[in-house]
Design a protein around this nucleic acid. Structure first.
Length: 684
DNA sequence: GTAGGGTTAG
């Protein structure tokens, strides 16, 4: 059965179908046509059990209904649709696929009917009986493209794309659905290139074809290819629909491609495609992941209906931008509006606490998961807690949590603890974590670099040399850092020391100028972070040519004065780059928004919104915090975003105030859909 | 009677 789009829960049955139902119930002699009409009405309204109940009530007076191919195929559809949510009721009615199959066989006519056959194969497949589905398919006296397509989809749903391919290759006739199902089949089995081969072999394509290919790239995290496909699609004048756009947006978020994402949003608004919950959520997620939390909030507040994924995306987006208090207040609003949070919600809530250093709040949320919300914490929640405890200096408590948790700790957990040891220069626990990591994830380069940095900070130069040797001895490949920046709707990507860009010469000239001005402003390169065994000057050079600095230099070169630079990085921000970029924001009077592997850094006026939470700077003391609060009061006349007050942000009792840049939200220069002028969003 | 979509610890 095709689900009613956008309805989600059961939409109302259409009046004419309800009237048909009423007439049937009253009539002495139920007729098959009316019964089919009423059943179809219930199916369309996602009320399959009602369809079955109707049929059941009619059967004593009209047993012929089960020998009738119309009502029989509808009964099969209803039965498989109802099985997932009302299994006991369906079983009690005796109208499962097997009994309906038996009824069909009693009247040879119905068993030979292609509609009945198709519904039968689908019903068996949906009940998880691939063997019976295949048998029903093989027993079909003849086959058409619909029947084969259902068999294809059944194999694809089980992840058996090779079997699907055999059916596909054996088909005399194929339609768009057959081809599209194969694209999807290869996509879910992870074979994106085969999906593309199928896609390329098609004579005609429809929105399903493009969407399936797009989501194949998006799921395989081949976002560059997804964006290329989007351009191809636009060039081919094919019409994207809501679902296509969800997939493109997911690729934009992955790449940090704000310009393309904004273009897609504009397209959504101009094409009058209805923005359903999923598309809205995809937009929220895209804007947040591209560093544009303002537009993310605008979309969130504009959505008339939201589900748990919508709230999660917004909560996680805010948390990753260091707006933890907003994330937490959104969480309580979500709960007070009666939505049930899920596991992912708590990942966002705990991340918010970590980025703010709210240890006791984090513990409360963590224990409320089971106690209040009935959600068992999973390994990622323990991971969040290890991060929260470790990062705030409670390394022993983090160790105990790892020891006592009901899971075998994975590499991520130990790596998190290692990160905390780096902040607090705890060599002993770092070595313990490293010992575990050498077993659990021996080939990842990041651990060795982290431990080396810990040794360097503890002035243990033998330790640094040892790490260098280990890396070489075990042939561990360093993952190159990559930073990208969008310019003129294209993504420009840099690796360390990159000279491949067409404007490389200018970029290096700009870089030189930048480094000169930074040195004058007091910048000192952190050469102790460089792992290669090279002289001091080469180390300085290596640091200066880090991918983030190249991307910044390119940005300074190509964008107008005072505009914001947005950069996306594949690894954690390098500490030297972090301090250099803070100074750049001051010296060049620029805002820079940098997305690293797991959060955002908003640089402005020599500071970063992360408050250096990942470096060895401790949380600010009370005096600093109260000064900060005083400073904020003078800046706060206003903030209401979509009717939602954010002034509570500055009432923080604990942890880091990382939201000093927030008053910008009041006056958002909106480059987004539809308009270029500044849009005041101060008043709801 | 058949096919495609959104959130997740470091």
């Amino acid at each position: 059965m095709r689900r009613v789009r956008g309805g989600g829960a059961a939409a109302a049955a259409r009046p004419e179908h309800l009237a048909a139902h009423a007439r049937l119930v009253k009539s002495a002699c139920p007729d098959a046509f009316l019964a089919a009409t009423a059943m179809r009405g219930y199916l369309r309204a996602c009320l399959p059990l009602q369809a079955l109940l109707l049929l059941r009530s009619l059967l004593p007076r009209a047993p012929c209904l089960l020998g009738n191919s119309f009502s029989l195929s509808l009964a099969l559809q209803a039965s498989s649709a109802a099985l997932s949510d009302s299994a006991p009721a369906v079983l009690g009615l005796g109208l499962r696929a097997a009994s309906l199959h038996a009824r069909a066989l009693k009247s040879g006519f119905a068993a030979a009917d292609l509609f009945v056959r198709t519904a039968l194969v689908e019903a068996y497949a949906k009940a998880g009986r691939a063997d019976l589905a295949r048998a029903a398919f093989d027993e079909a006296p003849r086959r058409d493209v619909f029947l084969c397509n259902v068999m294809l989809a059944a194999y694809v749903a089980r992840g058996e794309v090779a079997e699907a391919r055999k059916v596909f290759d054996g088909m005399r006739e194929r339609d768009l659905v057959s081809w599209n199902t194969m694209i999807h089949g290869y996509a879910v089995s992870g074979d994106v290139d085969m999906a593309r081969e199928i896609f390329d072999g098609m004579e005609d394509r429809d929105a399903f074809s493009w969407s399936s290919m797009m989501s194949a790239y998006a799921k395989g995290r081949r976002s560059k290819d997804a964006l290329r496909l989007w351009r191809e699609m636009r060039a081919a004048c094919a019409t994207p629909d809501c679902i296509t756009m969800v997939s493109v947006l997911s690729a934009c978020g992955d790449m940090g491609a704000l310009a393309v994402g904004t273009e897609v949003h504009q397209f959504v608004e101009s094409s009058k495609v209805a923005v359903d919950v999923r598309l809205g959520t995809a937009l929220i997620d895209m804007y947040a992941k591209c560093g544009d939390i303002e537009n993310s909030l605008i979309v969130f507040h504009s959505m008339p209906s939201k589900d748990v994924l919508t709230w999660n995306s917004m909560i996680i987006g805010l948390a990753n931008h260091g707006l933890g208090h907003d994330a937490l207040s959104l969480f309580s609003r979500m709960v007070s509006e009666g939505l049930r949070p899920n596991e992912v919600t708590f990942v966002g809530v705990l991340t918010a606490c970590t980025h703010l250093g709210l240890v006791s709040d984090g513990k409360k949320y963590f224990s409320s998961m089971g106690a209040v919300h009935g959600i068992a914490p999973k390994v990622e929640h323990f991971g969040c807690m290890v991060d929260l405890l470790g990062r705030s200096g409670h390394i022993e408590e983090a160790r105990h949590l790892i020891r006592d948790m009901p899971f075998e700790p994975d590499a991520v957990i130990w790596r998190t603890l290692l990160g905390s040891c780096r902040i607090y220069k705890n060599v002993e626990v770092a070595e313990e974590a490293m010992a575990k990591l050498r077993v659990l994830d021996p080939h990842a380069d990041g651990h060795y670099v982290l431990l080396s940095n810990i040794y360097a900070q503890a002035n243990s130069w033998e330790g640094v040399a040892e790490m260098r040797k280990t890396l070489r001895r075990e042939g561990i490949q360093r993952i190159p850092g990559r930073s990208s920046i969008e310019w003129q709707s294209a993504t420009h990507e840099f690796v360390s020391g990159d000279r491949s860009h067409p404007r490389s010469k200018e970029i290096y000239e700009m870089l030189e100028e930048v480094m000169d001005r930074l040195r004058q402003a007091g910048y000192r390169p952190m050469t102790e972070l460089v792992l290669q065994d090279i002289d001091e000057q080469s180390k300085e050079r290596a640091l200066a040519e880090h991918s983030e600095k190249l991307a910044v230099a390119f940005g300074l070169l190509t964008t107008p004065a005072r505009s914001t630079l947005r950069i996306t990085k594949n690894l954690r921000a390098c500490e030297d780059c972090h301090s250099a970029i803070k100074l750049i924001s001051l010296v060049y009077n620029r805002k820079l928004i940098i997305r690293d592997r797991n959060r955002f850094h908003h640089f402005s006026e020599g500071q970063c919104s992360c408050n250096d939470y990942w470096t060895d700077q401790k949380l600010p003391d009370e005096e600093q915090k109260s000064q900060e609060r005083e400073r904020m009061k003078t800046q706060l006349a206003h903030p209401i975003i979509g009717g939602w007050r954010t002034s509570h942000l500055y009432k923080s009792g604990e942890g880091v105030l990382s939201t000093w840049w927030l008053p910008d939200l009041v006056q958002v220069p909106r480059q987004g859909p539809g308009q270029d002028e500044s849009v005041a969003i101060g008043v709801a």
